[in-house]
């Protein structure tokens, strides 16, 4: 993306993060407006599910993001452990709340979508269950980080947890899927919603626009959050003091 090692020091990354956050923030708002317009007015009514399917345009990007963010978070944590760069672990912890938020949105919209489709708010479907477990993993990460007072230990411990988690995610995912097929008889048969098969081209485009809006939103929010984490952790450093002086005057 950009020269990581030049900007590995918080002091030089701080102003860059500010500019990037602004850019991505604006881009995400524009895409979101376009995406929402397309989802509600351009995309045609589904022949099977009627208007209710439109929640998919929020649900699917949120579910994708929730999984992707966990992996990205683990990568930052791994980078932080290997190269001992403070910035990497700050990035990991700045992504966690956004990831948890998307997981929550995916669960919530999944429930809303499930009511008209399956006739129940919650179904123990493999994907919903995995998403729920992912939420637990995010919550564990954030709880561990906030329980440790020493920021250095917090960063290293939560980073290790993210790594353990990311190794476990595929195992959990496949075991949940196995469990779901095994108990198929007792649970409601889950139809795929016709998402992959009968999607018109415009639906795919809408989905893509919404996904990019979520991407840019995540980057903008994570960068904004990392800026405040930098200020908090580097509060003793001379460049932070100079910055604060500048702001005051």
């Amino acid at each position: 993306m950009f020269n990581l090692f030049k900007y590995a020091s918080p002091a030089s990354f701080y102003p860059l993060a500010g500019r990037l956050a602004m850019g991505f923030g604006i881009a995400s708002v524009i895409l979101l407006v376009i995406g929402l317009y397309m989802s509600f007015f351009v995309a045609p009514t589904d022949y099977k599910q009627g208007e209710g399917y439109r929640i998919m345009f929020i649900h699917v990007p949120a579910a994708w993001m929730s999984m992707l963010i966990y992996v990205v978070m683990a990568c930052w944590a791994a980078a932080g452990m290997i190269w001992h760069t403070r910035l990497s672990s700050m990035m990991a912890s700045s992504l966690a709340p956004t990831g948890a938020m998307f997981t929550f949105i995916a669960l919530w919209t999944g429930a809303l979508w499930g009511k008209p489709m399956w006739g129940a708010w919650w179904v123990w479907d493999a994907r919903l269950t995995s998403e729920l477990i992912l939420l637990f993993l995010y919550v564990g990460f954030m709880a561990l980080e906030s329980a440790i007072d020493d920021p250095r230990r917090a960063a290293r411990a939560s980073g290790l947890l993210a790594l353990v988690g990311v190794i476990n995610v595929p195992i959990i995912y496949y075991s949940v899927q196995w469990w779901n097929t095994l108990h198929q008889g007792s649970s409601i048969k889950v139809v795929d919603g016709g998402v992959e098969t009968s999607m018109s081209e415009i639906m795919v485009w809408t989905l893509l626009v919404m996904t990019f809006a979520c991407w840019f939103y995540t980057i903008a929010v994570a960068l904004t959050r990392v800026r405040s984490i930098i200020l908090e952790r580097e509060s003793g450093a001379s460049w932070v003091k100079a910055l604060l002086q500048e702001r005051k005057s």
Binding site: I133, F136, L137, V139, G140, A143, L144, A147, L161, V164, G165, N168, I171, I172, S175, V176, W178, W179
Partner: peptide, 16 residues
């Protein structure tokens, strides 16, 4: 806290 961290990891063992 330990239960929050560990229980999700226990899920595959529980399922199998």
């Amino acid at each position: 806290l330990v239960s929050l961290l560990v229980l999700p990891l226990y899920i595959p063992v529980l399922i199998f």
